[in-house]
Design a protein around this nucleic acid. Structure first.
Length: 156
DNA sequence: GCCAACGTTGGC
DNA sequence: GCCAACGTTGGC
């Protein structure tokens, strides 16, 4: 079992949106970064736990817990000319972009803002809090995952 | 809205 | 295969 942090802009797709989806499950489409794709394609396993992070919002932070709900498969939005994520270089016979389904797992009692994550000792090495980190999918350690979950389960 | 960081593109 | 230009991310 591995642990991940996945960023999403809540204006585009929030944790609440995931919860409202059919089966509370949604394909994590639109990833157009090779490192992030490789994590989904090569390393994610069904049941892996995910910190669902809200980026580009005030304040940024972890909104809830999700899990990996499928094996990797081609990102179909790359083949759709009408999609914002259309990529003519992705050949359906040899897809460039792969994704997994992500499923709602659990609510936190409260949102864990980035400012607070920065103060959690277990999280001092997290890629998330390092400068210039733009990668939208990063592995997290069990200790990091548990520390953030614990913070989110504590009443404010 | 600014801007630092960083990934990608494309000319050479 | 180098690297400048460009586009995007995302915190502030």
């Amino acid at each position: 079992m591995q642990y991940w942090l996945m960023k999403s802009e809540p204006d585009v797709f929030s944790f609440g949106d995931l919860k409202a989806c059919k089966n509370q499950t949604e394909p994590w489409d639109g990833i157009r970064n090779y490192q992030a794709r490789n994590f989904m394609r090569d390393d994610m396993k069904i049941g892996d736990q995910i910190l669902f992070y809200h980026s580009n919002t005030k304040p940024p932070g972890v909104a809830g817990i999700a899990e990996v709900a499928s094996k990797p498969y081609p990102d179909f939005t790359a083949f759709d000319k009408k999609s914002n994520y259309y990529d003519p270089k992705s050949d359906p016979d040899n897809p460039r972009w792969m994704l997994v389904d992500v499923k709602f797992k659990a609510d936190l009692k409260r949102y864990v803002p980035l400012d607070e994550i920065k103060t959690i000792p277990e999280c001092s090495e997290m890629r998330l809090i390092q400068r210039g980190n733009r990668l939208s999918i990063t592995p997290v350690t069990k200790a990091e995952f548990q520390a953030i979950k614990k913070a989110g389960m504590r009443k404010s």
